[in-house]
Amino acid sequence: MNNQDNRAKTECERKEDLMDYLYGEFSAEQEKSFKKHLLECISCQKEVNEFRAVSTSLKAWHVEGSPNVSLSEIVGETVKKQLPTVATARSVREIISELVAALPAWFRYSSAFAAACSLLLVLMATLNTEVRYDKNGFSFQVALFSKDTAESPTQIDKKQVETLAREMITQMVAEKQEQIKQELEIQISALNKELSEKNSAQLSRVTLELKTEQRERLQRALLELERQKNKKPSEFEDDPFNLWGSLDIKTGDRNTTNN
């Protein structure tokens, strides 16, 4: 029965015209000409009616719903960053905040301590601080204005104590600063070492991954090449627009299509 049908169709060679007519892609003149042909060609008349019925049937299948895809759903943040983006201007405050946040905690605290000591010294100098140590014990005095009285023996002692105290504090601060500096150097060197180790480990891992991936790709390409050997060359091959140029998307079932 199929063979009979096929024989009947080969009687008319205007298959492509039939498609144009059926889907309204003829110009007015071409359509007029084909309509004239239809009056004479029973084979084409039959096919027009049958294909119109098939078309009506096809329209019965509706697809409901929508996938509701979003960029964040399909693309992770990492991939998003791979696209070129315009850098936005950042304020100085933001940059400083980021810089401070990046510093290690111990560095932040020791710097704060040094700054506090310096501030204390400045304040003491400004407020005419007197630090005394005598038979009554240790005493501490602050005054907004310095006294211009004659120096008594006890005042000489006071001055000596004050100088001593100043020297002591200066020495303490210097020692602390030296200690912080040393600690900082040790930490930086340790960090450098750690970073270098991490980098080399990461580099080795990435190299290994790349090699594996390349090997897999090569295998896939070889398989694909093998598969395509017995097939007709794809029309997509010369098209740089085709992302999967090497993959044949339409010859797969060609053998079955011409039954």
Binding site: E50, V54, A60, K250, D253, T256, T257
Partner: peptide, 28 residues
Amino acid sequence: TVESINETMQRGQVAGLVKKALMGLPPD
């Protein structure tokens, strides 16, 4: 005939047939 399918069957049934028939066609 396809004409009789459209005439005698309900739309839902026709849709089912169409889906099956279409899935059976070669992808190209």
